Amino acid sequence: MRTRMHTGDELEILSQGFDQMAGAVQDKVEALELSVQQRDDFVGAFTHELKTPMTGIIGYADLLRSMQPDPEEQREAAGAIFHEAQRLEALSGKLLQLMGLGEHAPQLVPVQLDSVFAEARRAVAPALNGCILTMQSNGLTVQGDADLLCDLVINLVTNAAKASTPGSAIAVCAEQADGSIRLTVQDHGQGIPADKLPRVVEPFYMVDKSRSRRQGGSGLGLALCSRIAQAHGGTLAMESELGKGTTVTVTLPAPNQTAAELAQEEPV
């Protein structure tokens, strides 16, 4: 409740003070309610994502344990168990990274993007699905953590490959702009609906859940990329159009620019 007194004297001043305090308390309560809701949503989504592969693993393991399938059925069951176990491993690894980034700030040092791109290219080669990958670092150096930056590029390229058809182009490029480094990953894949674009960096959010799970996705890749960008004092932005593709732009600090300075220029 608000007093909203208009007496023109000391009581009105006191009334305004109480109203301001009530407003501040209400803002805090609403923020706590949102935090609790986000936590509940996260736990619910995490539980669901664990349950899905575990159901497949238990089902196929029970088939192998209780029946005598022929060799082809055995290979199919073993393959399904292996695929779902890989999903669990990727899910747990990315979740640990997300938690680690929230607890410990990385040590940022000058990192040459040539080496980051080379390592990322080797890692994503099996996941390109016939896509043509080009990477252009322009010899640039950023202020960052080499392992985290490599993970960022790997996740962005892997997502681009999953959304693209074989033979499509995926371009990774780094450019210097406004005293910082802009890293872009562009594909010509399915694209993302405009109404869903703001949510794609939420943990466990998947635009097409069935396709993502079929391809081994967990809905954590873009969330992790966003956290990595934030940990560097940078930003992650996305532009997409259905049927034409998606461009992800990550802004990172240049070697002569601290993460704090970059964060002041471009709020996360």
Rank of each mutant, 00 (worst) to 15 (best):
G44E: 05
E266R: 15
V29T: 08
I192S: 02
M21V: 11
T158R: 14
T258N: 03
L95F: 03
G245D: 06
D147Q: 10
D147F: 05
T141L: 09
R211L: 12
E239Q: 12
S35D: 09
V200L: 06
P53L: 10
L88E: 02
G79D: 01
A231W: 00
N159A: 04
P267W: 10
V268I: 12
C150D: 08
A229M: 05
T249Y: 00
A146C: 08
C225D: 03
H6Q: 08
V109P: 11
A229E: 03
L113V: 08
G216C: 06
M206H: 06
P203Q: 02
K162M: 15
G217N: 04
Q230T: 15
P253I: 03
G8D: 01
G233N: 05
P267D: 02
T251E: 07
D19N: 06
E30C: 09
T251V: 09
I181S: 03
Q112R: 15
A237Q: 11
P126D: 03
P53K: 11
V185H: 01
T246R: 03
G233M: 06
Q190F: 12
Q112G: 12
T3F: 15
L133A: 03
N138I: 09
L197Y: 07
P106V: 14
G8I: 01
T3Q: 12
K162N: 11
L91M: 07
V200K: 00
I228E: 01
A24V: 13
L133E: 02
I58E: 11
M5A: 11
P110S: 05
P253V: 01
L101D: 00
A90P: 09
S218W: 00
A259C: 10
A125H: 11
E49Y: 14
P71S: 02
R227S: 14
T52D: 12
P255L: 00
L183S: 03
L91C: 06
G191E: 07
M54H: 13
T184G: 04
Y60N: 10
A45D: 07
Q74V: 14
F18M: 10
G191W: 04
D19Q: 02
G221M: 01
L14C: 04
S210H: 13
G219H: 08
H6W: 04
G189E: 01
T7G: 08
A160W: 07
Q190D: 12
G44T: 07
R39H: 14
V124Y: 00
T158F: 11
D9Y: 10
L108Y: 02
R211I: 08
D9S: 08
K51R: 12
P53S: 15
L140A: 09
T251A: 09
A177E: 03
A77E: 08
A45F: 03
E49I: 11
E33T: 10
L242F: 06
Q37L: 06
N159W: 01
A127S: 09
L220H: 02
H6V: 07
Q264M: 13
Q38K: 15
